[in-house]
Computed example of a mutant assay.
Amino acid sequence: MAVTVKEISGAELEQLISGGRLLVDFYSKTCGPCKMLSFVLKDVAKDIEGVEIVMLDYDANKEAVEKYGVEGYPTMIVFDKGQELTRVKGLQQKPKIIQMINGG
């Protein structure tokens, strides 16, 4: 079964973060690389299981941005049961994102 990519708020992030594996994409609606990354994430979601993929608007969720020390966009962070596993900035390709999700 494929994973879906959905947009959430900072409050929703706090509810999801303590669950299982979670990839959070901090993005901006005005950012070109962020828009391209959203297409890559939708492609990743077709081929992976066991993770939730969510997008968080950088500009609309300043509290979450500050809490997790996000300094720019796009930034992706993979969490597992509330613990940060890995973080990467900038546009990434599908193999790198799958590697991140799988703990590499």
Results as ranks from 00 to 15, higher is better:
70 V>F: 03
71 E>P: 01
71 E>C: 10
71 E>I: 13
71 E>A: 15
71 E>N: 11
72 G>A: 14
72 G>F: 12
72 G>T: 12
72 G>Y: 11
72 G>Q: 11
72 G>W: 13
72 G>V: 09
73 Y>F: 13
73 Y>D: 01
74 P>V: 09
74 P>L: 07
74 P>M: 08
75 T>C: 11
75 T>H: 05
75 T>P: 05
75 T>A: 09
75 T>G: 03
75 T>K: 04
76 M>A: 02
76 M>C: 04
76 M>V: 15
76 M>T: 12
76 M>S: 07
76 M>N: 02
77 I>D: 04
78 V>H: 03
78 V>S: 07
78 V>I: 11
78 V>P: 03
78 V>E: 03
79 F>C: 08
79 F>L: 08
79 F>R: 07
80 D>P: 04
80 D>F: 10
80 D>K: 14
81 K>H: 14
81 K>S: 15
81 K>N: 14
82 G>S: 11
82 G>V: 10
83 Q>W: 04
83 Q>E: 14
83 Q>M: 12
83 Q>N: 13
83 Q>K: 15
83 Q>L: 05
83 Q>R: 12
84 E>L: 07
84 E>F: 08
84 E>D: 06
84 E>H: 08
84 E>W: 08
84 E>N: 06
85 L>I: 14
85 L>Q: 15
85 L>S: 10
85 L>D: 08
86 T>C: 13
87 R>I: 05
87 R>W: 10
87 R>L: 07
87 R>V: 06
87 R>G: 08
87 R>N: 07
88 V>D: 07
88 V>K: 15
88 V>Q: 14
88 V>F: 09
88 V>H: 13
88 V>S: 14
88 V>A: 15
89 K>N: 11
89 K>V: 12
89 K>Q: 14
89 K>L: 11
89 K>E: 15
90 G>R: 13
90 G>K: 12
90 G>I: 09
91 L>P: 05
91 L>V: 08
91 L>T: 06
91 L>Y: 15
91 L>D: 03
92 Q>F: 02
92 Q>C: 05
92 Q>I: 04
92 Q>W: 02
92 Q>T: 04
92 Q>D: 02
93 Q>E: 10
93 Q>F: 13
93 Q>P: 00
93 Q>T: 08
93 Q>L: 13
93 Q>K: 12
93 Q>H: 11
93 Q>A: 09
93 Q>G: 05
94 K>F: 05
94 K>G: 02
94 K>Q: 06
94 K>T: 05
94 K>R: 15
94 K>S: 03
95 P>D: 04
95 P>Y: 09
95 P>I: 03
96 K>T: 12
96 K>Q: 13
96 K>H: 11
97 I>T: 00
97 I>V: 07
97 I>D: 00
97 I>P: 00
98 I>V: 15
98 I>Y: 01
98 I>D: 03
98 I>G: 00
98 I>R: 02
98 I>T: 12
98 I>A: 01
99 Q>E: 15
99 Q>F: 02
99 Q>K: 14
99 Q>G: 11
99 Q>A: 15
100 M>Y: 04
100 M>A: 10
100 M>P: 03
100 M>G: 01
100 M>Q: 06
101 I>H: 00
101 I>F: 01
101 I>P: 00
102 N>D: 03
102 N>F: 01
102 N>T: 02
102 N>R: 06
102 N>M: 08
103 G>K: 05
103 G>N: 08
103 G>W: 03
103 G>L: 02
103 G>I: 00
104 G>K: 12
104 G>T: 01
104 G>R: 13
104 G>C: 01
104 G>A: 04
104 G>N: 10
104 G>P: 01
